[in-house]
């Protein structure tokens, strides 16, 4: 995966003191702990929280130091976590925010104070973003709809829950989504909310596609083209939906927009590329890619906290953030 920041392989000697502090701070553990403690937290937000915590501990005294710390931390976090697409969206957003705003405060110190003090606020806002999406997406779900849903997504979960709370009567078909089996979780939480659900195996997508009115999925990351990086199986579902002329809606928070431009699923970093062998390898099915990339032409619309966007709207938001 192409990382956005210029590679700073070794810290310069002037920054050695910084490195000491950040070495004593296990960035990966902190990141994973954030995700563990708050099940509602998404990966980009956890990454932002981790960086904020780091800033609170290291107390950099110059803005150069601050930037250096953040750069190094971002690098090591991206390297240490396997599925780094989503978290790199958070790191990049935070980095960009710091760089853009450091000069806006008269002194950079108050900038840092703001960032550290508002740690919890970011998490709250990320949750509000989800609520926004639940509102923006509401009119897409109508009475008597049959909705095909892939795997589990917190945003999609909150949207469907909101729709059911507003007394819209719809039914959901959830795909099992191997190998993570997150589909079973989705089916469970939706049934608990009183929504009629049918859980189907992944191979049944084609069997049910004619029976559904629309297809929904979440996203791990939204690429610059407007295509989405999501749990494995999204691509085939999208192609199927296009073939059957069913709309595919992606629900994603805007902090998942990431500056990547993959052209095919194989452009994504994976631990387990496709391999051939004549002997039976161990755990073959467990060792398969967990995410795939769905190109933008298959997506009808993205339901985000910024509103309902066409895929080309994503690049515009990213351009607004990075090049002006």
């Amino acid at each position: 995966m192409a990382s956005e920041q210029p590679a700073t392989s070794q810290p310069s000697s002037s920054a050695s003191s910084i490195m000491e502090v950040s070495e004593s701070f296990d960035i990966k553990a902190t990141y994973l702990k954030f995700l563990e403690d708050d099940k509602e937290m998404t990966m980009p937000v956890a990454a932002i929280e981790t960086l904020v915590t780091l800033l609170g501990i290291t107390q950099p005294s110059t803005s150069y130091e601050l930037i250096k710390i953040l750069e190094n931390a971002t690098q090591s976090l991206k390297k240490s976590v396997k599925n780094s697409i989503s978290l790199s969206a958070g790191c990049d957003l935070f980095m960009r925010f710091v760089l853009r705003n450091i000069h806006k405060y008269g002194d950079w110190d108050s900038c840092k104070r703001h960032l550290v003090a508002n740690g919890r606020l970011f998490v709250e806002r990320a949750k509000t973003a989800r609520e926004h999406i639940a509102e923006n997406g509401l009119p897409f779900i109508r009475d008597d709809d049959v909705i095909l849903v892939l795997s589990y997504s917190r945003t999609l979960h909150s949207l469907l829950l909101n729709a059911s709370k507003k007394r819209i009567r719809f039914r959901v078909i959830v795909t099992e989504s191997r190998p993570s089996n997150k589909g079973s979780l989705m089916a469970k939480v939706l049934r608990e909310a009183g929504i009629p659900v049918s859980l189907v195996v992944d191979g049944m997508m084609g069997y049910v596609i004619d029976k559904v009115d629309k297809v929904f999925c979440g996203a791990e990351g939204v690429a610059e083209s407007g295509g989405v990086i999501n749990h494995i199986g999204t691509y085939q579902l999208a192609v199927l939906a296009r073939n059957a002329n069913k709309p595919l809606y992606v629900v994603a928070e805007s902090h998942k927009f990431v500056r990547l431009f993959p052209l095919s699923p194989s452009d994504l970093p994976t631990e387990f590329p496709v391999q051939f062998s004549i002997t039976e390898p161990e755990y073959e099915l467990e060792r398969s890619p967990r995410v795939d990339f769905t190109p933008h032409q298959y997506i009808t619309a993205l339901i985000t906290d910024l509103g309902v966007l066409t895929p080309s709207g994503v690049s515009e938001e990213l351009i607004k953030m990075w090049y002006d």
Binding site: R100, Y105, L115, F257, D324
Partner: peptide, 19 residues
């Protein structure tokens, strides 16, 4: 007044972080 009144164009994705 500071941060938030940065030009109205750049509000969107920074909503998460701005004051």
């Amino acid at each position: 007044k500071g941060l938030s009144s940065s030009s109205p164009l750049i509000t969107s994705m920074f909503n998460l972080l701005s004051t």
